[in-house]
Structures are given as structure tokens and as C-alpha cells.
């Protein structure tokens, strides 16, 4: 089979790799680029474990064929922290105790990231809706929702301090 020269931006860096066009974006991220923070859960777009951000939108990477990611900008869980500093959301998840087995966590954090980018002051119901496509079997979501609330408050405070 002819390989497809996939060009995209991943976590701010330009990537150009020849891939089998039948691969899913999830496979390219994990197996070709070795970004294993993105998890495969159900493989059928139901659980959200494989969530990544494509051009600002939350997408299940198991439902995206590699060529569909061509010329797109992808953010994975590896891309949200910089210089060893945790992202506000990551710190909030730690503080709230929102991580148990951890399998849903990368997708949850990216879902929350997209939510906060569109709605910086979400209410409890907005948060529940924002993460409703990401299943968690073990936390009961309570501490995840709490973490997103904490992060939202933290970001507000940061913006206030920066005088924005």
C-alpha cells in the first residue's frame, strides 16, 4: 500500500511522517510518535480515553483516520505542560484527588481544557456536560468536577494578576 506523507503540527512542533493511510490518528500518536499519554479505551468513540484537541476542538482520536489529521494542529496531553511545569488543570487534578486509576485522566484533562477555553467560568452542570463524553468508571466524577472548578478559579486568578 502507498504510504501517506502525513504533515501536521503536534504539540506545537511540525511533524512529517509517512504512514499507512488506514491508521487511526490514535495509532500514529501512540505507535509512530510514541506519545503514549493518549489512551485507547473502547476504540469506538464512546469512552473519550483517546481524546485529543484538533484545531481547538475535542476529538476522539480513535475515530480519525491519519489523513484526516493532515495539516491540522493537534494537542495531546503531553503538549499542555511546558518546561516541566504542570498545567493549571493538571495541578488541580492532583490537588482535588481527581485521579484514581488514571486511564480516563488524559482525555478528561483535555476535555476540561477545551471547556475552559470556551467557557472560563463554567457552572457544575456546564462542567458535567463538558466531560460527559469522557467516561470514568472509578471516581464517580465528583473530584474531577471539583478539579475543573479549582482550575477555572486558578485561571481567573492568574488572569487577574496579569491584569488581563
Amino acid at each position: 500500500m502507498d504510504l501517506f506523507q502525513l504533515e501536521m503540527k503536534v504539540n506545537g512542533e511540525a511533524v512529517s511522517v509517512p504512514v499507512n493511510p488506514g491508521l487511526r490518528l490514535l495509532d500514529v500518536l501512540r505507535d509512530v510518535l510514541h506519545l503514549s499519554g493518549t489512551k485507547e479505551g473502547c476504540g469506538e468513540g464512546e469512552c473519550g480515553a483517546c481524546s485529543v484537541i484538533i484545531d481547538g476542538e475535542l476529538v476522539d482520536s480513535c475515530l480519525v483516520l491519519a489523513p484526516q489529521a493532515h495539516n491540522r494542529e493537534i494537542i495531546t496531553i503531553e503538549g499542555i505542560s511546558a518546561d516541566g511545569e504542570l498545567d493549571t488543570l493538571q495541578s488541580a487534578f492532583l490537588e482535588a484527588g481527581a485521579v484514581q486509576c488514571g486511564y480516563c485522566t488524559p482525555g478528561m484533562i483535555l476535555a476540561a481544557k477545551v471547556l475552559l477555553s470556551k467557557n472560563p467560568k463554567p457552572g457544575r452542570q456546564d462542567i458535567a456536560r463538558g466531560i460527559a463524553g469522557n467516561l470514568c468508571r472509578c471516581t464517580g466524577y465528583a473530584k474531577i468536577i471539583k478539579a475543573v472548578e479549582l482550575a477555572a478559579a486558578g485561571l481567573q486568578q492568574k488572569e487577574g494578576e496579569a491584569g488581563v
Partner: peptide, 15 residues
């Protein structure tokens, strides 16, 4: 599968 065997989402959870 999770499309036919439904488990609670964040929207199904009460306080």
C-alpha cells in the same frame, strides 16, 4: 460495548 452497555456519565451523577 460501551455503546450498548451504558455506564454513568458525569451527567448521570447527583451530588
Amino acid at each position: 460495548g460501551l455503546s450498548s452497555y451504558l455506564i454513568p456519565t458525569a451527567l448521570d451523577m447527583p451530588e
